[in-house]
Write a protein that binds this DNA or RNA. Structure first.
Ligand code: MN
Ligand code: MN
Ligand code: MN
Ligand code: MN
Lengths: 230, 230
DNA sequence: CACCAAATTTAGTCTAACCTAAATATTGAT
DNA sequence: ATCAATATTTAGGTTAGACTAAATTTGGTG
């Protein structure tokens, strides 16, 4: 199909896709932080990616980048590989949910379309990875997903955990130990304005858990409206 | 354990291991041909690999290379990855035996020891890949394997197919279509000295098959001594 | 035993992707 | 509006791994 892209280019596009989902554009420094390279390296790479034919991103000096449709397509292919692989490692090979991200980060660049379609079949055309993130469909449509951050909720509000950022393995082990996993129901019991801590009762758990903002920022939820009490 | 090696280095060591199994040393040109790079590139790389601490191979100008024990250990790790992956793709994901080599050639460099041990468990600690090649054990001992080439056999001699070189997908499809697969029993019916053709009756097959030397050179067998007829 | 063809090495380039240090642009606070 | 802090770009350099073209070594043959 397309001429081969390097792993580095694929990682840039994947990260830029993520960053531009939240904000409108991705800045040099944000990209550099996410990829653990220097801002100078990012400037060099994005200039190159903006100069390809067709361009993979649109770049304005000092103003960051957005992906072009071509760049977005490639980003979605890689994200599909990544999330399918995570689920495959989790379901078929018995990995725990804190181990899959690192392995998928390397495998995503080397599997063939054949491999992709074989594991899709084994997994039954799945729509979500082990952290609740949506898997782009085979024709690269990204399913809609929860954007409400747990950090925004306040006491008495209820909901279900939808997805959890998967970059930090230690955080994932902590959350798993407390039952904070996709589909878990919860109610907010308390909020501390000073430190931003939230106390949560997870459904079916013996005791509540207290989560700081560094944690709640990584978790996305769906609200369940309280039954109206007159 | 060891500081990361590049994919290129791993491919050099893997190929050099293969070449030195047949002959004593691997020449620059042989390595270049196998890796599809120029001889000049090979000279550059082997000088570097001979100069590492500890050296991964022993190099004499104009005289080719042999692996050191350290180089051989790395080669065996990669070969173990490769053959386990081939079997995994074949058994678990349903690949055909002509598709697995190309996919494993890319995956072998990126899977973790975790991945290796998970698929080892799924496959039940296997000893042979889909082409009959031996899989080095977890502590990197290479099982013994057939070294008798089918090309050497002559009429009336019988044996079983043990392994088939896996680099050429088209050849593998051809052999599969004629039942020339590991463990198949056969008897040589005829030999043509002029063109080197062998006519083989494969056990359980309706008709004999004629194989030229380009093919029989790729196949290794075990003899079965004929029952003594007085 | 000298010479030629083949194999191999040397020398000089190239690209991809990273880096550091220095220069410059942007922005928000006075 | 000014200026310092921050963000970004430029300039110059490194490493890995490849290439081509030009030397050089080797080994077999006349
Ligand atoms: Mn990656
Ligand atoms: Mn994930
Ligand atoms: Mn390889
Ligand atoms: Mn094989």
């Amino acid at each position: 199909m397309r001429d081969e892209l390097t792993h580095a280019v694929e990682d840039y596009l994947k990260i830029i896709y993520d960053l531009t989902q939240s904000q409108g554009r991705a800045s040099t420094t944000q990209i550099a932080t996410a990829l653990e390279v220097t801002p100078a390296s990012v400037t060099g790479m994005i200039k190159k990616l903006a100069a390809t034919c067709p361009p993979l991103l649109e770049y304005q000096r000092h103003r960051g980048v957005v992906l072009t449709p071509e760049g977005e397509k490639i980003a979605l292919e890689i994200i599909r590989h990544h999330r399918l692989l995570e689920l495959f490692l989790y379901e078929t090979l018995g990995y725990s949910w804190d181990e899959v991200d690192a392995e998928a980060d390397r495998l995503e660049h080397v599997i063939s379309e054949e491999f992709e379609s074989r594991i899709t079949a084994v997994l039954g055309d799945p729509t979500h990875d082990p952290h609740g993130d949506p898997i782009p469909s085979p024709d690269l449509e990204m399913p809609s997903h929860a954007t409400l951050c747990l950090r925004e909720l306040r006491p008495k509000q209820s909901g279900t955990i939808q997805r959890v950022r998967d970059g930090d393995a230690e955080l994932l082990r902590f959350l798993h130990a407390h039952g904070v996993v996709p589909q878990a129901g919860f109610t907010v019991l308390a909020y501390e304005p000073f430190d931003g801590n939230l106390t949560l009762q997870i459904e079916g758990r013996p005791a509540p858990v207290v989560l700081g903002p560094r944690v709640t920022r990584q978790i996305f939820v769906e609200r369940i409206e309280e039954e109206q009490i007159p």
